[in-house]
Design a protein around this nucleic acid. Sequence first.
DNA 1: AAGACATGCAACATCAATGTTGCAAGTAGA
DNA 2: TCTACTTGCAACATTGATGTTGCATGTCTT
Lengths: 207, 207
Amino acid sequence: MTTHKQQREQQAKRPLRADTERTVQTILEAAERVLTTNPAATMEQLARAADVARTTVHRRFATREALLDELTGWAARQFADAVDTARPDAAPPLVALYQVTANVLSVKTHWSFAMNRAAEDAHPEAARIHAEVRATCARLFRRAQEAGVLRPDIDLDWTRRVYYALIHEAAKEGAGGGDTDALATRVVDTLLRGAGAPAGLAGQTGV
Amino acid sequence: MTTHKQQREQQAKRPLRADTERTVQTILEAAERVLTTNPAATMEQLARAADVARTTVHRRFATREALLDELTGWAARQFADAVDTARPDAAPPLVALYQVTANVLSVKTHWSFAMNRAAEDAHPEAARIHAEVRATCARLFRRAQEAGVLRPDIDLDWTRRVYYALIHEAAKEGAGGGDTDALATRVVDTLLRGAGAPAGLAGQTGV
DNA sequence: AAGACATGCAACATCAATGTTGCAAGTAGA
DNA sequence: TCTACTTGCAACATTGATGTTGCATGTCTT
């Protein structure tokens, strides 16, 4: 006799059967999809979204927490990949900035729930990864400042937070699968130039 | 005999006793405080934070929902006030922009949970108020654009969303009661000028 | 001081979500 | 084909949060 508990305990030791692996994927993707619009969704709802019985979900993930953790870790790794691929420490600052933005956007539009959750901690690996990315981002911005891309007088931490916020905002827009490159262009443009008209032009009636 | 249910049903009809009014205030403030860091906080936790028995909370608010709605409405009204006080339709665009930012920040640093929730809907009044504010904001930005404060080629809706995001970000920083004016200055500055160095200066090695 | 009202406390009822198990039926893979 | 594994289903146990009530005690208000 093999109880679910026992099955799960062996999960790590043995390779999964092909169809099972697919099921796990399906569940994770459905979970992401549902949780993005309703973070408090029930296991039942997640199961139905994956077109699977609730018990099946429990067979693969011991607890709800375990499922969320899996999602979180998955997204964090994708995140790290997206950043590294852009060669943030090697490419010229502006190029790297643009590339990082585009890559991250494409991940974030598809894994928005999991990525937000990762920032919360409670998941050591994800926390570590996000801290690393933050550091990488800080280095990139420092290089950008030294290269004259960013104003010398600006607060780099504030700038990084603004950058994150802009990406977050752009990701909402691109949720349905918009043009990542166009969004990235807009994010970088807004970050660097802002929305104001260059000083010294016509119509400065305010102040 | 007066059951709690009956008490609550009369709540609207009668003026509250002085100490009760204070209790209600205390509960709302404590709820805001706790929910900001833990949106899933229990009624028990909210009660303890207000230094009150759980039953007392239930006596004043029929359900958890009712409590949250009260918070939401309260915050929405403060929000509307903050915007209107800045004379967004009359003052010169830049002045209005700065003033609105400062006012909203001071509200948002103290009612961050309730303000975020208001955007979600489920509360007709709050939804209406937020829609109005959004419209006011749009008008202000249009005026700013016509006055040459904002670039003529920019997407005003994106700009508004960026503006909201910047305020949100600044509000996090000022949570402990930071200098609202300084934060507002930074928000407006970032929105208008961005973080980039003016074009045509030294060191444009990137791209 | 007296009546009305508010509070804390303890106990209870309900309910929804989580997690478990056994079993029958179906599928993967050798 | 045969075996091992997986799934759906139905049923159950548990838990934590919500909401209710009665009562004793204390505090306003007049």
